[in-house]
Deep mutational scan, measured.
Amino acid sequence: CHSECLGNCSQPDDPTKCVACRNFYLDGRCVETCPPPYYHFQDWRCVNFSFCQDLHHKCKNSRRQGCHQYVIHNNKCIPECPSGYTMNSSNLLCTPCLGPCPKVCHLLEGEKTIDSVTSAQELRGCTVINGSLIINIRGGNNLAAELEANLGLIEEISGYLKIRRSYALVSLSFFRKLRLIRGETLEIGNYSFYALDNQNLRQLWDWSKHNLTITQGKLFFHYNPKLCLSEIHKMEEVSGTKGRQERNDIALKTNGDQASCENELLKFSYIRTSFDKILLRWEPYWPPDFRDLLGFMLFYKEAPYQNVTEFDGQDACGSNSWTVVDIDPPLRSNDPKSQNHPGWLMRGLKPWTQYAIFVKTLVTFSDERRTYGAKSDIIYVQTDATNPSVPLDPISVSNSSSQIILKWKPPSDPNGNITHYLVFWERQAEDSELFELDYCLKGLKLPSRTWSPPFESEDSQKHNQSEYEDSAGECCSCPKTDSQILKELEESSFRKTFEDYLHNVVFVPRKT
């Protein structure tokens, strides 16, 4: 048989008469490798580009789960590009990614509803959504962080984005990388972005840091009482949809009607710091009717980097990364020049730590249904340095008659930039024990000054392991946590139920 035959053949030295091919099969003959313009397919066939392209389009058009959109890589027609490569849609070739590779997620039936953290986790790592997304989240724990972890990498949506009755959302900033909504599939009414009845939605994105392009379709905003109209108009300008909307697409009466839409800028007039305090004062603000001013709200939190936005980490279910302080308005003076500047002394802060701070007014709604208010920009203030805590785990070892090696770990709280350490030492008198000992005694162990690591005695271990207080009263049991108490109650309830079950099964009433 021919060298490319495997198993047997019907005619000697003829690659077209093989029972099976050793390498690849091409047009009725066995070959060692697939010549151009053919590609290896499933490690035994040679196919042309049209064959591989037909497989790709067949799966793409069917949208069946589990099928493969075949691509070409290293002269092979394979189910998908290997790690580190992405497909070129024009020629199906796998090309190296520039940075992290995109991950295209194809949605069944063309859309997916995100109504819980669990459903959001199914899209973790996706960068391109081939379909439409509907966000409908009523509640949950730590929602802002969970949504950002699972949806934060999405850069492109081919269909539309719909935010509907998501009472738990305060902001859409968890879509931190969303840059493009194509609108290839539109919501009824030709809408590519749809926001309806979101009672706590206050911000779409921080438009000073976020760009969003909507290729096709219109915007729809109705019944978002805490979303200011200025935020919607800003989205029109940034996304390129200005002029597409009709009169009733953006409701003037049901958007922002319960919001404090600040239209003035508060400026800080005085800032002073110490290692654990920050004193702030800002310019006074009074609405047209000074009785509408209820006070100020001061927001602050630790910020290692200057990239904080107002609604980071917030949701309507209680999660809030900001510390909020309510401040009463100052006494009002008739003389504008003698107006008191409101302020606040922030206490209990960490030394040498940068804080993000902003302040906003708290006002009631005027009778004319106009909203007044003022808010400052987010500023960054760093507390002063102070003395560091003591170095940890000092170790001293003498390696000769004239040297001592000293080692330690950095302090747990540096409280500033540590530039150097101060080492103090003092000579001590020799131990009298060394002169009084009889060095001729056998088995004498000389006193040693070398360091030995501390260890816990058996008594201390027994005390720590004991669940009861000892007789001397030195140790006591740790208080039980809520989960331990709940577990004990469940076990007790189970024992009672099981005992009742045994009584009912074992003891049967005697027939009379």
Rank of each mutant, 00 (worst) to 15 (best):
K103L: 09
K103F: 05
C105G: 01
H106W: 13
H106M: 07
L108P: 14
L108I: 11
G110R: 10
G110C: 03
K112G: 03
T113R: 03
D115M: 03
V117N: 13
S119N: 09
A120T: 06
E122V: 05
L123N: 02
L123W: 05
R124P: 07
R124F: 08
G125P: 04
T127M: 11
N130T: 11
G131C: 02
N136R: 06
R138S: 05
G139N: 06
G139K: 14
L143G: 15
A144N: 13
A144Y: 06
A145L: 10
E146Y: 13
L147A: 14
L147S: 03
L151F: 04
L151Q: 00
L153E: 09
I154S: 01
E156A: 08
I157F: 03
I157L: 05
S158P: 00
G159P: 00
L161F: 07
L161Q: 00
K162Q: 06
K162W: 06
R164H: 11
R165L: 03
R165A: 04
S166N: 06
Y167T: 08
Y167H: 05
Y167F: 09
A168Y: 11
V170Y: 03
V170E: 04
V170L: 08
S171E: 08
S171Q: 11
L172S: 04
S173R: 08
S173T: 09
F174A: 13
F175H: 02
F175R: 00
F175C: 03
R176I: 07
R176Q: 14
R176A: 04
K177H: 14
K177N: 13
R179C: 14
L180D: 12
E187L: 10
E187H: 08
I188S: 11
I188M: 08
N190Q: 12
S192T: 02
F193M: 14
Y194V: 13
Y194D: 12
A195C: 12
A195R: 01
A195Y: 00
N198I: 02
N198L: 06
N198D: 02
Q199T: 08
Q199A: 12
Q199N: 13
Q199F: 07
S208I: 10
S208Q: 14
K209Q: 12
K209P: 10
K209H: 06
K209V: 07
L212E: 00
T213L: 10
T213R: 13
T213K: 10
T213N: 05
I214K: 01
Q216A: 03
G217M: 01
F221R: 00
F221Y: 15
H222E: 02
Y223N: 04
N224W: 00
P225W: 15
L227K: 00
L227H: 00
L227V: 06
C228M: 08
C228L: 03
L229N: 01
L229Q: 11
L229S: 05
S230W: 03
E231M: 10
I232N: 00
H233G: 04
H233K: 13
H233I: 09
K234G: 05
M235F: 08
E237T: 08
E237N: 10
S239W: 07
G240S: 06
K242L: 09
K242A: 09
R244C: 10
Q245N: 13
E246C: 06
E246W: 03
N248M: 08
N248R: 02
D249E: 13
I250K: 05
L252G: 10
K253R: 08
T254N: 09
T254Y: 07
T254H: 13
N255W: 06
N255Q: 05
N255H: 12
N255F: 06
G256M: 13
G256K: 15
D257E: 04
Q258N: 02
A259S: 05
S260A: 07
S260Q: 08
C261N: 02
E262A: 11
N263A: 04
N263F: 14
N263P: 14
E264A: 04
L265V: 14
L266V: 07
K267V: 13
K267F: 09
F268G: 00
F268N: 00
S269R: 12
Y270V: 10
I271L: 08
S274A: 08
K277N: 10
K277A: 07
I278L: 15
I278V: 15
L279D: 15
P284T: 06
P284C: 04
Y285N: 05
W286D: 01
P288L: 12
D289G: 01
F290Y: 15
L293V: 03
L293A: 03
L293P: 01
L294A: 06
G295K: 07
G295T: 05
F296L: 10
F296Y: 00
M297K: 01
L298D: 00
F299Q: 14
F299K: 06
F299M: 07
F299A: 09
Y300V: 12
Y300C: 11
K301L: 05
K301P: 00
E302F: 13
A303M: 09
P304L: 12
Y305E: 10
Y305H: 12
Y305G: 11
Q306P: 07
N307D: 15
T309P: 02
D312C: 01
G313C: 02
G313Q: 10
D315P: 08
C317P: 03
C317N: 02
C317Y: 09
N320F: 15
S321L: 07
S321P: 09
W322R: 00
T323K: 10
T323N: 15
T323I: 14
V324I: 12
D326R: 01
I327K: 02
L331V: 11
L331A: 06
R332S: 14
R332N: 11
S333L: 10
S333R: 08
S333I: 08
S333M: 11
N334K: 12
D335C: 11
P336I: 08
K337P: 11
S338R: 01
Q339T: 07
Q339A: 12
N340T: 14
H341G: 13
G343M: 15
G343A: 09
W344N: 12
W344K: 15
W344V: 08
L345A: 07
R347N: 09
L349G: 03
L349P: 01
P351Q: 05
W352C: 03
Q354S: 08
A356T: 05
I357S: 09
I357T: 14
F358P: 00
V359M: 05
K360S: 05
K360V: 04
K360R: 13
K360N: 11
K360M: 10
L362N: 00
V363I: 08
V363P: 09
V363A: 12
T364N: 08
F365Q: 14
D367N: 06
D367H: 03
D367V: 02
E368F: 14
R369G: 10
R369S: 05
R369A: 05
T371L: 10
T371Y: 08
T371A: 10
T371W: 07
G373K: 02
S376T: 07
S376N: 00
D377G: 12
D377S: 12
I379G: 06
V381L: 10
T383H: 01
T386W: 13
N387L: 10
P388E: 00
P391E: 00
P391N: 00
L392D: 14
D393S: 15
D393A: 15
D393I: 15
S396M: 03
S396L: 02
V397R: 09
V397L: 15
V397H: 13
V397I: 10
N399F: 10
S400T: 09
S401K: 13
S401G: 07
S402T: 01
S402C: 06
I405S: 15
I405H: 04
L406V: 05
K407V: 03
K407L: 06
K409W: 10
K409F: 06
P410K: 01
